[in-house]
Structure formats: C-alpha cells, structure tokens
Computed example of a mutant assay.
Amino acid sequence: MMYARVAAATLVLLAVAACSGGDPADGEPTTAGTPSASPSPTPTLAPPTIPPEAQEHSADGAAAFVKYYVSLVNYAATSGDTTPLSSNASSNCGSCTRLADRYATIYRGGGSSENPKWAANVTSSQLIDGAFFVTVDLSTAAHRWRRTADARFTEVPAGRHADIYSVKWTGTNWTIDRLVPQEVPE
C-alpha cells in the first residue's frame, strides 16, 4: 500500500514536470519547447478608396466627393501621407495646400497626429456658376498632435465647425477648388 502511494506520487511529480517543461532533478524549467512571442506586425495604413457615388457628375456626387476628401484629411493626419489629399485639390485652393503642408511638416519633423476623426455632414450641394458649392457641418473627436518627436502633445478638444467647399468637375473627376471655413454652427 505504501509502495502504491509512493509510485502514484512519483507519477504525479513526473507528470507535473513534463507539463511544465521542467526537470524535477534540478528544478530549472526548460524553455526549449516554449514558443517565443513574436511581435505583431504594425498595420500599414492605406489611403481611402474613392466611392463610386463620389465619381458621379451631380450634386450628390459633389457631396460624396467632399466626404471622401474629408476622409483623406483623416488619412493624412494619421499617416503623414499628404499625396492623396494634394492630388484631389486644385492649385487654386490655398486652404487645401496649407492643410496638406501642415501634416507634411509635422511628420517630416518626426511629429505625429492622432486621427481627429473628422466627420462630414453635408447640409447642401448647389450648382453656382459651373461649380458645386458644398456646405458641410464638420465634427471632430478630441485628439492630440505634436510638431516633433520630442515635443509635448497639443491637446485638441472635440469640436464642430462648418466649411464651404467649391468643387469642380474636370471632365473625368472632381477636384476641390476652394475651401472656406465658416462660423461655428449653433
């Protein structure tokens, strides 16, 4: 009976040692069978894809294009890649150029910007003198940014404002021709 208890205890100790990967003789666990954690890959951001409705030559198409442009602003803020933002605005749009330059400068200096999550709510899209004027109520989440890698973050509270975009059809696609900030909506 005593022999059975000793044998059982020995089997339990061997089983525990086998499960833990340790050797009961020296008490040091072995790491040979332990998989090492591999770092997860950093996701690569891709620019937003233009939706089909933003390629229609209509008031709704112009409105959809402005929403797409706002998604490009979010992408530039997060990635520092301002090429899609710049390529969808004409050289006439000084506000567009300054916006793209701002994010390019931040990232070139080693800074960063969290995604402000701009959301565009189009309130009107009207054809005036060959261009569509799209009025947008924009909202943003609280976010932060910093000019260089070692700079302190600037905190930006959630907010709202309105913009008017002048959108022109080039014959094959839309382009932002002008961006005019408006007073904060009530």
Results as ranks from 00 to 15, higher is better:
residue 1 M to H: 12
residue 2 M to H: 12
residue 5 R to Q: 14
residue 9 A to Q: 11
residue 10 T to V: 14
residue 11 L to C: 10
residue 12 V to Y: 11
residue 13 L to R: 10
residue 13 L to W: 09
residue 14 L to Y: 05
residue 14 L to Q: 06
residue 14 L to T: 03
residue 18 A to G: 08
residue 19 C to Y: 09
residue 21 G to A: 01
residue 22 G to A: 08
residue 22 G to F: 14
residue 22 G to Y: 08
residue 26 D to Q: 14
residue 27 G to V: 11
residue 27 G to Q: 12
residue 30 T to I: 04
residue 31 T to N: 10
residue 33 G to T: 09
residue 34 T to H: 14
residue 35 P to Y: 04
residue 36 S to A: 13
residue 36 S to H: 05
residue 37 A to E: 14
residue 39 P to R: 11
residue 39 P to C: 10
residue 40 S to N: 15
residue 41 P to N: 05
residue 42 T to L: 02
residue 43 P to K: 06
residue 43 P to S: 06
residue 43 P to C: 06
residue 44 T to F: 11
residue 44 T to E: 12
residue 44 T to A: 11
residue 45 L to Q: 01
residue 47 P to V: 05
residue 50 I to N: 13
residue 51 P to F: 05
residue 51 P to L: 06
residue 54 A to M: 00
residue 54 A to I: 03
residue 58 S to F: 01
residue 58 S to G: 04
residue 60 D to H: 14
residue 61 G to L: 02
residue 62 A to D: 00
residue 63 A to E: 07
residue 63 A to V: 07
residue 64 A to Y: 11
residue 64 A to Q: 04
residue 64 A to K: 01
residue 65 F to P: 02
residue 66 V to H: 00
residue 69 Y to H: 05
residue 72 L to G: 02
residue 72 L to D: 00
residue 72 L to W: 02
residue 73 V to H: 03
residue 74 N to Q: 14
residue 75 Y to I: 09
residue 78 T to Y: 09
residue 78 T to E: 09
residue 79 S to V: 03
residue 85 L to G: 05
residue 85 L to Q: 03
residue 87 S to G: 06
residue 88 N to G: 04
residue 88 N to D: 15
residue 89 A to V: 13
residue 89 A to S: 15
residue 91 S to M: 07
residue 91 S to G: 07
residue 92 N to I: 07
residue 92 N to E: 12
residue 92 N to Y: 04
residue 93 C to F: 00
residue 95 S to I: 13
residue 96 C to T: 05
residue 99 L to Q: 15
residue 100 A to H: 01
residue 100 A to C: 07
residue 101 D to H: 02
residue 104 A to C: 03
residue 105 T to N: 13
residue 107 Y to G: 04
residue 107 Y to V: 04
residue 108 R to N: 12
residue 109 G to L: 13
residue 109 G to E: 09
residue 111 G to L: 03
residue 111 G to C: 01
residue 111 G to E: 01
residue 111 G to A: 05
residue 112 S to K: 02
residue 112 S to M: 01
residue 112 S to L: 11
residue 114 E to S: 06
residue 114 E to M: 14
residue 115 N to C: 10
residue 115 N to W: 02
residue 117 K to L: 15
residue 118 W to S: 02
residue 118 W to A: 09
residue 119 A to T: 13
residue 124 S to T: 10
residue 127 L to V: 06
residue 128 I to V: 04
residue 128 I to C: 08
residue 134 V to M: 04
residue 134 V to Y: 03
residue 135 T to Y: 03
residue 135 T to V: 08
residue 136 V to C: 07
residue 141 A to F: 12
residue 142 A to N: 01
residue 143 H to K: 02
residue 143 H to I: 09
residue 145 W to V: 03
residue 145 W to A: 02
residue 146 R to F: 07
residue 147 R to W: 01
residue 148 T to N: 07
residue 149 A to H: 09
residue 151 A to N: 10
residue 154 T to C: 02
residue 154 T to V: 13
residue 157 P to R: 12
residue 158 A to V: 11
residue 160 R to F: 11
residue 162 A to I: 00
residue 164 I to G: 02
residue 165 Y to F: 15
residue 167 V to P: 03
residue 168 K to T: 12
residue 168 K to Q: 10
residue 169 W to S: 04
residue 172 T to S: 15
residue 174 W to K: 10
residue 176 I to H: 01
residue 177 D to W: 12
residue 180 V to E: 07
residue 181 P to C: 02
residue 182 Q to Y: 00
residue 183 E to W: 09
residue 186 E to K: 05
